[in-house]
Design a protein around this nucleic acid. Structure first.
Lengths: 334, 334
DNA sequence: TTGTATGCGTTATCAC
DNA sequence: GTGATAACGCATACAA
């Protein structure tokens, strides 16, 4: 029971006929319009329920000109950082009855643009999370993507709202911390070339490198494996402290160090970015620049929502991250 | 440039008028029907391009009766295991021009059903990943959810295809491994009560517990924090080996053990399930039951695709996991 | 090969 | 308050 034979698809008209009212009335009832006689409304609801009627969302979308869907586009869904942002958007959007479509661009800048455009046709708005697309290209397609909001990226020329993190500030905190611990030789595990955040961190790193210090940049990437592979090379630079592009690569490096018997932080200190959940449970626990990941998503939604409903747009926001000092950093070996 | 003024939304009719053909022809061209004069087709394409026309996917969905969208519903998007399944589905679906909507039920069985139904209205089919919903309830709404495929779950009474993992086999491998190492006191960090996989593992665990062994079940959950919290209690049972419901809780426990100075595997061995990427990079590296996560997603898609196109349905498949022995397990302390 | 007409399921604008 | 009716943008029989 419960299952059984059924009309393949029950439409608003079937309900209308069964309830002996017009389709318009059924529509009003389903949308909780107040302009319907309460008694009639109840009857319609019962009929609808008994028939198992559920409005076709696609048709609604067409008729109303909005789908109730937004999309979040991320470079790598496997990164807990982006998942948190996604969760933030999802939660916030859900509270306003919006659903979230997620699209993974797999760190491919070319595809990102295509995906964004294609996705935009199915949803009411976009959240572009750390987009890898060039400024110019983003500018070129901006109008076709609107409304959208940028996370971790600022593109001059568009009036798209942006929520971001002041990574430079985080970098300064890291360098101050490492300096205090006596480190003078730093290696940076560089992220994806197309990542603007990577550029940002790198530049801040360079700016914060004093004359008494050296900074070596090691090509890396954004995944575990990248950090694992780069760990050796980082060590070869003679660095006593390794700063990872993000927590994932930092943890990858941590894994390699453990494997080859390099003590952390005894022999080398390790720092990450983002403060993903896993960073708290590694051995040693990872010192990292903590960013309010979910809040980024929430704020992104607020702005997207404002655009969707033509409300006043909150100003761009930039979060100042906090250095979370844990076990993976220590004084330089004497 | 690139941006600038333009008709808010350009429809097929505008293209038709500009190209001096009928809307039907434009439609045919956009859908690459062969029955169009090549010369005409090119003209239409150029006009469409110059106007920046892009078909409204919502309208297409309504007209064709299919959206080109499928949804994956997971209990916890934060779990790398489900992300991998999701990725598998996404990749496979993309190759057939389907897009994937992802929905997180946040481990809430009640909401899962609602979400599934609501989501189903927007997509052509569903992948239910480790659904927490009761068998009966799932049966009740099965017809409203079809077509759908189950991952990590088998519901008798539905003819929904299922792709799953033989966790019992994995459990036996774990117990054999631990037995060989001399462990006789095992603690199991139990997962969400609604998780069928958890039941499966627990039962297999009990079945594999010989008279010479004891098995203590410690209430836990599915997140890092759960494992972290449960670690103490697991230790208090006197166990020399801790089996986590999944890798995430196992890593959480690992973190706690490290924090309180309990050596792994010296004092206690730890085992997980799934073999998420992080398991390879922890210290010590986590011994775990490795399941082909992405392949689960791929196989799920194959079945969903078959249903969508009314092709012959591949038989249900059950993967036999492989025990990945790494550093977190060792001989019992003598 | 191309155009015309109709339908997809709902919402919204009108009259009543 | 309620009911026809016209969009919404596109795809597709059917006709030409």
């Amino acid at each position: 029971m419960g299952s059984g034979d059924r009309p393949e698809t029950v439409t608003i008209h079937q309900v209308a006929k069964a309830a002996e009212v017009s389709a318009a009335t059924v529509s009003r009832v389903m949308n909780r319009r107040q302009s319907v006689d309460p008694v009639l409304a109840r009857r319609v609801q019962q009929v609808a329920a008994s028939l198992g009627y559920q409005p076709n969302e696609v048709a609604r979308g067409l008729a109303r000109g909005r789908t109730g869907l937004v999309a979040v586009i991320v470079p790598d869904l496997g990164n807990p950082m982006f998942q948190s942002v996604l969760r933030g958007v999802s939660r916030a959007a859900a509270s306003e009855d919006y659903r979230v479509l997620v699209t993974d661009s797999h760190e491919l800048p070319m595809e990102e643009t295509l995906l964004a455009r294609e996705t935009r046709l199915r949803v009411d708005g976009l959240v572009l999370c750390s987009p890898r697309t060039h400024d110019q290209e983003l500018l070129d397609i901006a109008t076709r993507l609107e409304p959208f909001v940028l996370v971790n990226r600022h593109v001059i020329g568009t009036d798209a709202p942006a929520v971001s993190v002041d990574y430079a500030s985080g970098v300064r905190a890291v360098m101050a911390h490492l300096g205090w611990l006596g480190h003078t030789r730093i290696a940076y595990l560089s992220g994806p070339v197309a990542s603007v955040s990577n550029q940002e961190r790198l530049e801040a790193l360079r700016a914060a490198t004093t004359e008494a210090m050296t900074l070596d940049v090691v090509e890396c990437g954004s995944m575990h494996e990248d950090g694992y592979q780069a760990a050796d090379r980082a060590l070869a630079t003679g660095a006593t402290a390794v700063v990872g592009y993000n927590d994932v690569v930092a943890l990858g490096a941590l894994g390699k160090f453990h494997e080859i018997g390099v003590s952390v932080p005894g022999h080398v200190s390790v720092v990450g970015f983002d403060d993903i959940a896993f960073a708290r449970y590694s051995a040693p626990r990872l010192t990292t620049v903590s960013v309010p990941q979910e809040e980024l998503g929430v704020q992104a939604w607020h702005r997207l929502s404002a655009m969707l409903h033509e409300r006043e747009l909150p100003a761009d926001v930039s979060f100042t991250p906090r250095l979370e000092v844990r076990g993976s950093t220590g004084p330089v070996a004497s």
